[in-house]
């Protein structure tokens, strides 16, 4: 998720969302609330695409560490990339083919998976 570090700041400042508000927005938008019904096996497979860039992320990386990211926030950021509300074209391209089920599956995976090394 290149640029997500900046993106996290951006989405907070521009959308003024908190986790609770984001969760509410997902619910009223008919989105997949992260934990319920998310497909863990699908998330594990889809996560392999993320690992090419995010697997070695450090605190000062332009490509952020996404392991342990809360599901609601994860969903929020990926949806923002999909909508091109966040700027990085790599992540816009990655997110463009993810449907809500894919995003929920990834969010579940990364909240619980351990970062390698």
């Amino acid at each position: 998720m290149p640029g997500a570090a900046a993106g996290q700041i951006s989405i907070r400042s521009t959308l003024s969302t908190s986790r609770a508000i984001a969760a509410y927005l997902l619910t009223i938008a008919g989105g997949v609330t992260a934990s319920y019904g998310a497909d863990a096996e699908l998330g594990r497979y889809l996560s392999s695409e993320c690992m090419t860039c995010h697997g070695a992320a450090k605190a000062d990386s332009t490509i952020p560490n996404i392991f342990g990211l809360g599901q609601v926030h994860f969903v929020e950021v990926l949806r923002a990339y999909r909508a091109k509300a966040l700027p990085n074209p790599v992540m816009q391209t990655v997110a463009s083919r993810l449907n809500d089920e894919d995003i929920a599956a990834l969010a579940l995976y990364f909240e619980t998976a351990r970062k390698p090394n």
């Binding site: 290149p2 070695a56 992320a57 490509i63 816009q92 391209t93």
Partner: peptide, 29 residues
């Protein structure tokens, strides 16, 4: 996507940092 002519210097600088982080990521993968 593809980089465009006339892009701002900070975008190009960010691209370089991103490429270095990508290298670290892919070799770990």
């Amino acid at each position: 996507f593809i980089s465009q002519k006339g892009e701002a210097a900070d975008i190009r600088k960010q691209n370089y940092k991103e490429s270095v982080d990508w290298y670290n990521g892919i070799v770990a993968d």
